[in-house]
Structure formats: C-alpha cells, structure tokens
Design a protein around this nucleic acid. Sequence first.
DNA 1: GGCATTTTGTATCAATGACTACAAATAAAG
DNA 2: CTTTATTTGTAGTCATTGATACAAAATGCC
Lengths: 200, 200
Amino acid sequence: MTTNKARPRGRPRGFDPDQAVATAQRLFHARGYDAVSVADLTEALGINPPSFYAAFGSKAGLYARAVGRYANAGAIPLPELLCPNRPVAESLAAVLEAAARIYAANPDAAGCLVLEGTRCNDPAARETARASNDAAADTIRRFIAARHPEEAERLTDYMNTTMAGLSAKARDGYSLDRLLATARLASQAIAQALPASASR
Amino acid sequence: MTTNKARPRGRPRGFDPDQAVATAQRLFHARGYDAVSVADLTEALGINPPSFYAAFGSKAGLYARAVGRYANAGAIPLPELLCPNRPVAESLAAVLEAAARIYAANPDAAGCLVLEGTRCNDPAARETARASNDAAADTIRRFIAARHPEEAERLTDYMNTTMAGLSAKARDGYSLDRLLATARLASQAIAQALPASASR
DNA sequence: GGCATTTTGTATCAATGACTACAAATAAAG
DNA sequence: CTTTATTTGTAGTCATTGATACAAAATGCC
C-alpha cells in the first residue's frame, strides 16, 4: 500500500501532497476560495511558494485537487443515497436531509465546498466547481429519469436550487434543526409531485 | 422638486451622487461586490478617487447606498405582495414567483443584489447586506405570524432558503422558465403546510 | 476684490494578490 | 566521484487593491 514506487530521483519532498490537499480542502471550505490566499496556504502547509507551485501548479490547481478529494470525503454520498430499490421521492428526501446534516455538521466549514465554489471570482476555480456540480446534477437527473422521465428536469432543478439554498443558509449560521425543517418541507413538494403509486 | 436648497458654498460637484449610486447598483449587481474595484467604479462614474471618497466614504459606503436604493428599485416589492386580504399561502407563492421573475429579468444582473452580497468577502458590505436581508425576513415572518404564528419560523426559513437558492441558480444562468417551475413547486409545499381552510 | 468653503485632478501610498528566478541542497544513476 | 534530476529556501517580481496628501480650481459670502 505505502510502497508505491522506487524513489524518483532528485531531492525528496519535505511534505505529503495528499495531506496538503486535505489541509487545503479544510481551508477552502472554511473561508471560501477567494478568501484563502496562497500565503495562507503555504503557511498552513508549512512550505514555501516554490514548493507549492511545483506540486500543484496554481491556487486553482490545488483547489481542483481539494474538490476531487471532497467527493470522497465531505460531500453528499449520492451513490449510496440514490438507491434504485427505494422510491424516488424517498431517495430525494434522503439527499436533502443529508445535505442539511452535512452542511451544518461543521460550523467552521458550513455549506457545500462545491456550491460555494461556483460563486467565487476566479474563473478557473469556478469552472472546476461548476463541473463538479454539473456532474452531481447529472447523477440526480439520471436517477429520476430512470423512473419518472417526464419529471426529471423539473425535479433536478428543484433539488439543485434547494441544495444551493441550504448551503447558503448553512453558511449564514442556520442550525441543523432549521435546515432539517426546511429540507423536510421541501421534500413534501417532491412527494406531492411524485405520487407514491408511481414508485415503479 | 429639483429646487432643493440654495447652492451649499464651495466648488459645485461635477457629478450627480444619486445617479452615481444607480450606476454603482448596476455594477455591484452585475459582477458582485468583490469583483467590482474602486477603479472600476471611478471609471464608470467618470470621477477620480478623491471625489469618490469625499462623496461616499468608502467602497462599502457606496454599496450601502446602492442596497438602500435597491429596496425601491429592483428588489421584490414585499409590501405590495404580502397583502393581508389574500391567503398567506397565496401571498408567499406570489413572492416566490416574483423572485423567479426578478432574478431572471436581467441576465446581466441576475439574482438578488442583497442575497449575493451576503456572500462577499468584505465584512462591512456583508453586514450591510445581511441587515437588509434580515429586515426582509422579518417582514415575511411578521406577515405569516399574523395568521399562522405556529408556522412563522419554519415557513420564513423555507422562504429564505428557497429565495437564496433561486438567486444562486439565476446567477448560474437558469432561465426564467426553470426558475418559475422551481418557485411553483416550492409553493406547493407551503400550500400543503397551510391548508386553505385556515385562511383566517 | 478678498476670504471661506468645498470639490477636483495629479500623483501617489502601503498592503496584498498570485507567482517566479535562481542557486543551494539532496537524492539516484553512471 | 561525477552527472543528472528534483525539491528547497531566499528573495524577490509585477499587478492590483482600497484609500490619501496636496495644491489648484470653483463657488458663495462679505
């Protein structure tokens, strides 16, 4: 596992890039992309700018790594929530509830790293976040379309919009209880649009 | 109307502050607070920095003026939508529909100036936006509480969250149709929570 | 005309942003 | 030991940020 390859050649790295990505993920999530400077990052990582740029290319490059890591550590686990055996409305409700819980779980990193990233002022980072968000939206859309094709677009938009709102309000300091109440209320609209009878 | 007061004393202004606020409002709404620099503003206004700071104190000061103007020109007209003669659920649905329409009305200034402002990186501007948003939330909360006190908190949170989502997605380029569909779906949850029978 | 008052234009300021040039350091390969 | 390859630390670069110092210009008041 830890024996990957023989040492490359030159001087060995003085830091662990994967751990650096994890640290960067925390920082970006806590303060937002724009509010984290390269100086903040190099200080938090205990390295100097040249090491930073040699390893990650740019601030946006590191952000892309952090977003990639986020999918496996911190984001909503869509694959396990969107279960083909469960009614669609129930699955979507589970996603919204998970969003509320995850966005409020850590007050120092509230909301969704990706959704908040789509609002930043760096074009490269914004595109990274947008691509990740689009991928998640596609997953939801395909899940709905499999059983309710005529409702897929509308409900996907509704899910995306609701999650964006939940992320924003989580960053405004809304408590878990308030976010959960909103998520559940939002789920009722979905249940109404997808009568249980049409579960398959 | 235009004859306000006798000329003050010294050298007359070379620009109209009210028109400058209107221009600034457009710029802030189009690009967001952080992405508009003082240099952008002074250029758009055709003035130099000293005139800018003499008139508005700071970038955040001008933003406060722009937000104040927004309430009367661009924002959702809550006072006329929250009509005490109409059922609460119907009024709230009208607010969400207005949000969708207004947020998508101008593609060059999508979303809500205030809601997006609450996400900026300048503490002073953020506090200005937050105060304005809180005032709007209070208006909604009192309107609901007048007839459905036990639902006021939950529905106000739901409204705020939904509008934040609509604003974010409007900035993502969602069309009016998509935003309207989401707003209407969201309204169904409200209608369900406030049975028509309890209209008074 | 002369004085007080206010705004304007020129020319900055200090701080911070992302990013790099360059040589010393550290390793494997020959 | 020499060569080659890679990373490191020092010390910057250059553009941009929000905000100002200062004197000239333009008005009302006396």
